[in-house]
Design a protein around this nucleic acid. Sequence first.
DNA 1: CATGCTTGACTACAGCTGTCGTCAGGCGCA
DNA 2: TGCGCCTGACGACAGCTGTAGTCAAGCATG
Lengths: 128, 128
Amino acid sequence: MSKKTIGDQELALLQYIEDAPKSSVAEVVAGYGESRGLARSTVLTMMERLRAKGYLTRRRIDGSFRYSAINGTGEVMTGAVARFVQNTLQGSVSPFVAWMSERGQVSDSELAELEALVDTLQSRREKR
Amino acid sequence: MSKKTIGDQELALLQYIEDAPKSSVAEVVAGYGESRGLARSTVLTMMERLRAKGYLTRRRIDGSFRYSAINGTGEVMTGAVARFVQNTLQGSVSPFVAWMSERGQVSDSELAELEALVDTLQSRREKR
DNA sequence: CATGCTTGACTACAGCTGTCGTCAGGCGCA
DNA sequence: TGCGCCTGACGACAGCTGTAGTCAAGCATG
């Protein structure tokens, strides 16, 4: 089980590649690295590290490598959330709720997601 | 603004102290460090680093120092959540919601918090 | 052929974190 | 008075992350 840690920037990059699979390094540099002022070698290094940790695969296509995320869409993110809640919040969700309520802006769609979540949880509890 | 970064373990420790203010190092070692196999010096170092970053204060009482968190209760945690959502989740809350719904166990009290949150958000929206 | 751009693999390096060991000064008790 | 324990301050070190420069092999082009 690849339980390897993953840094913030690495995660952001991983997310990018998850959204744009089969990208060449050059493409990632253009579409991700350049906008944040990262050198080509930096992007390459991060991608290789992610590959070493088992989050990315690559395949040689037409001479150059194309990288893709291994986990399905969104899995990376939920994994990150799981780790965060576990390691940082000691398993408690309360701080998250507190923050949501403090912070002003919650988009309509987010609110909808939350409502759906509560519904799901409620019915799940009733069934018990 | 003390915008200093803060590691996972450091954060956990900070949270502990937030819940048990005016603790001496010995107390923190006994109540926090020992259970996770940390040496006294480790705990001390972390506490000092937290102090250097501006998250803890200490006052000499009866010879030895007593440490307390500077931020009010919970602020540390919500700050951590804010950073996490911002840096790692790129500002989107969806992964969080997705994870909660995937994960089986949500305690009754957590569910209650979520319900309250949704209520708050709903009424807040209506007022607009 | 000689040059030059593209792609990958390596190497480097500083800053942060997690973890300690150790040293020196006080304090209390035999 | 002397010894041992508690408390703080420092120094150390390895591993991870963020960021990058550089070198060598390939391919394209004049």
